[in-house]
């Protein structure tokens, strides 16, 4: 299954916007673990997932061609 990942702010510095193949992964909780293994910088950072423009508040099923956004908090002014 292929999904698209987009990321913002500091996270975009190490996860570029890309399509990835996640054969064994069915939901956002497993994807979070997978991404933190692929990109250890994510661990210990505050960020939030959004799946197809909806903030992910609980584990959610991922479908083919879904768009997952990874958003960190910004504080600058």
């Amino acid at each position: 299954m292929k999904i698209e990942i987009i990321s913002f702010g500091k996270i975009a510095e190490f996860i570029s916007d890309q399509k990835i193949d996640i054969a064994e992964i069915a939901d956002t909780d497993s994807l979070k673990m997978h991404l933190e293994t692929l990109f250890p910088e994510l661990k210990g950072m505050k960020y939030k997932f959004a799946l197809n423009n909806q903030l992910v508040q609980a584990n959610s099923i991922i479908n083919q061609n879904d768009i997952l956004a990874i958003m960190p908090p910004f504080s600058g002014g």
């Binding site: 987009i6 913002f8 959004a50 423009n53 909806q54 958003m71």
Partner: peptide, 20 residues
């Protein structure tokens, strides 16, 4: 909603916020 705006590309991405 929260809008993410990128100056370099002018890409905008709106995320719907739900209650947690």
């Amino acid at each position: 909603k929260i809008l993410n705006y990128n100056l370099l590309t002018h890409q905008q991405y709106i995320i719907n916020i739900s209650q947690s």
